[in-house]
Structures are given as C-alpha cells and as structure tokens.
Design a protein around this nucleic acid. Structure first.
Lengths: 240, 240
DNA sequence: GAGTGGTCTAGACCACGGT
DNA sequence: CCGTGGTCTAGACCACTCC
C-alpha cells in the first residue's frame, strides 16, 4: 500500500498524530529530526508534511515549526475529505446504508442554445440526458440530472444508467476522470424535485452542480444533483 | 506583487492560459522548455504548474505533458477563488453590492455540555455568543451565529461586532487566522431563521459551519452562517 | 543570535505514454 | 524506443520566530 518514501513518512506521522504521540507539545518534530529518523531527504519529509496540512491536521509556521491543529471527536467530521469522485457522503459517515437507483428518464438530444448556456456544451453536439433518483435507506434523497457528451462518452444505455455510468466510463471505455469542478447552491424546489424527492414539508433542495473533465482536458459531463435537506454535508478547508 | 520566482512563472503562465496562447495545442510547453524560457530551476517551474492545477486550470499527465482544461465563459464561475477568509462569496463575484450588518444579540456565556457538543469548545470556558444579520442590497440574506473562545479572543465588544470582528482579531489582537474548516449543509429553517431572514416562501436555509484555528493550532471560533436560498454559491475542486 | 520553515538550484533515476 | 512528468537526493541561502 505504501508506495513512495514520502507516502510512508506521511502515513507514519498521521498515525502518530491521531494516536496522540505529539499532542503534548502540539508540535511535530523539526524537519531535520524527521530527515534523520526516516533516513530520507528534506524533499520527502516536506512533501509528507504538506499532505498532512492539506488534510487539515497540521499547519506550518516559518521560524517556529509545524503545529498540530486541535481535534476532538466533534471536529472529526470536518476531516472527512471529499476526495471520492463519484459520490456524496451522508452526514453519518461510518453508518452502512442502503443505496438504490431508479431511472426516471433517458434520452439522447442535441444541445440547443439554452442547454448550451446551462451546461457549457457546444450548440449542436449530441448528449445523453439522464434523470435518476437515488434512495438512501428507502428515502428518495437525491435526483441526478446528467448530461454526457455523446461523442466523448459513447454507448450509454438505460441498463448502464441503472447500474453505474462512472464504472462504464472508467472500466469499459477506459477513460480517466481527471478533474471535477463543483458548485454548491441552495435552490427553491422545482416540479422535478417535488415530484421525485421525499421533501416532506421542505420546499428547497441542495444543488451540487458538477462538470467533469477527461485527461485530455475535455469537459464530458454536466450534472446537477438535487438533494433533500438535513441529510448531506460537504467539507471545505481554507488555509492562509 | 510578484515576490518569488515560482510566483512570477505562475502569473505569466496563468495570463497566457486565460489569453488563449496555449489553447490550440491544449498543452503547456514541457518542463524543460519552461526551465529554459524562465531561466530557473525545475523546482520553481513545477511549483508554478502545481498552483495552476490547484486552481483547476491544468492537469498533469505523466508521460504525456500538462493538459489545459477547457474553459468557457459559463464555466468561469467554477474556477476557485482561494484564500478569502473573512466572508462569503456572492454568486456574482465582480458585481459591486451593498453590505450591511445588524447586531441581533451579544452575550458572554459559559460553555455547557450541550454547547460543547455542538461547538467542540471545552465545558466551562467563557465564550462570546453573537448573532448578526447581514443584508446584501437591502435583503436580509445571512445570519451569523458566532461563538468565540473569550480566552483566546478577549475584549470583543458590541461595537466591534457591529463592524468587523475579523479585523479586530487580525489587526488589533494581531492573531493569525491559520486554518478554517467548513461544513456545508441544507437545513430546515428554524425560528431564528424565519424571524431574521428574508426567506419569502422558502422554508430552508443553507448552513455553513466554520471552525477556525490560530497559528498555535487552537480552535478559537465556531460559527454557523445560515443563508437564504438562491443567492450564494460555493466552489469545490476534486482531482484524481 | 540561534533555530526553524520557505525558496531555490543542479542533478539523478524511475514510471508512464505514445511511436 | 524516446519523451515526458513523478520522485528523490544534497546542498545553499533567505525570512521569520523567539529568546
């Protein structure tokens, strides 16, 4: 599992931090000591520390050292990273949950002016337009409204849409999903939402808009995921 | 403005990407050529490219090169504004807008069991509990519910709360805000929300929960920002 | 002034992509 | 096979923190 020098240093340090080895001083050992301990270069040690900082576990201060950030059971949930490409996390992270997909509609259409404005796909290209409802523990919690560029992602069928499009893209087409950009909003519920989601008394939805790129830099997907309130959470980390 | 070697390379490359200089090939020049052009080391060039990748402008492929990600006017809003610590972004970043703060309540209280569970502050410590409503262009759009550790951030007054607590923390107390962790949710509206926000027909709010740390690693703040639907947006970037 | 992390250089070898 | 980015080393100097 541990592939690189820096990765092994990173894993060791992370384990110690979570175990509380360094908690008393609220500091990591200085770089030179870590270089000596792991018998490696400064590059590898610094890269490991950088990864810990990316996760929000430590913070480097020039001239002082690498500081540990306080963490309590309550703040653990902030440390969940949204590194998973395909999915959304529930607010109960470790709980196992039932996950079902129902296909609402499946079409192949040509992008017109309005859809181009929304999705950033070029006018005239063919796209798959797919609506699916995701039920978590029997509750209709999310509706995915997907548009896939049919030239870049050909051959999607209703059957594939009912299982996993991302599996099809990665495993069958062998296309690499390089980058996903997301926008999160809260929107007033539309008819498509009230019709398909277990909104109860609520009349709003969360809206996660995703655009995904392959490793040639082409945008192959535009997706809106509308989800019901009180169920899902997203994390962010901001560093100075 | 340009301080370091890598920063100057980064700014130059970013400008060229946005101007379209490299768009035809959808590639950046290879590292060796950039090293030659900028007469610098590989370290500086790679650090600049890494920063471009962090912003979602490019993607590096081992063995192939550095690929440009497609960007259109529509997808500009997906590109990240990093580093804003003090506020919330509107969905129209460049638009000037009116911004007003009204103080709803101001108290100094002791953390009890329930509040400790919520905020991750230790039971028994004194905190400032502050509620403020932010109006954007005359619309009551956001209510901030702040808890500041009074031992770490002493001397907050109602007057300071009416202007800017973050200015007070950074400029007067000279405390560095090192890291902010955020959780984004959609919640059903509470009485505090319906009473203070221009929700209209909507009965839900966005909830941005922030916990902030100083450069000694101590959590000094827990804040919930409840905001009305259809006004604000947050960006995320996920890389493989 | 001593100690620490941040920036930078010059070089080496490896892993992967495409021909 | 060649060209490319990824990892890694050894070393230098600078900027900042703290005593």
């Amino acid at each position: 599992m541990t592939k690189n020098t820096f990765d092994s240093i990173y894993k060791t340090l992370k384990e110690r931090i979570l175990k509380g080895t360094y908690s008393i001083k609220m500091r990591l050992p200085i770089e030179d000591d870590l270089i000596t301990e792991f018998d490696s270069s400064r590059y590898a040690v610094r890269k490991a520390i950088k990864q810990l900082a990316n996760e929000g576990l430590v913070y480097s201060v020039k001239g002082r050292g690498v500081v540990l950030l306080e963490h309590t059971p309550q703040t653990q949930q902030f440390n969940l990273n949204l590194g998973e490409l395909s999915g959304i996390h529930t607010s109960e992270p470790d709980q196992t949950f039932d996950y079902q997909t129902a296909l609402v509609s499946f079409d192949q259409i040509i992008v017109d002016q309005a859809l181009s404005q929304q999705t950033a796909f070029e006018v005239g290209i063919p796209v798959y337009a797919i609506k699916r409802v995701r039920s978590i523990n029997g509750t209709r919690a999310v509706i995915d409204i997907n548009y896939f560029n049919a030239q870049l992602i050909p051959g999607i069928t209703p059957k594939i849409a009912k299982t996993s499009i991302y599996d099809y893209i990665q495993k069958t087409l062998k296309i690499k999903i390089a980058v996903v950009k997301r926008l999160l909003r809260v929107d007033s519920a539309l008819p498509v939402d009230t019709d398909n989601l277990a909104l109860g008394q609520n009349n709003c939805v969360g809206n996660m808009i995703s655009i995904a790129f392959n490793d040639s830099g082409r945008q192959f997907e535009y997706t809106e995921s509308h989800f019901i309130p009180n169920e899902l959470a997203f994390t962010q980390l901001i560093r100075n």
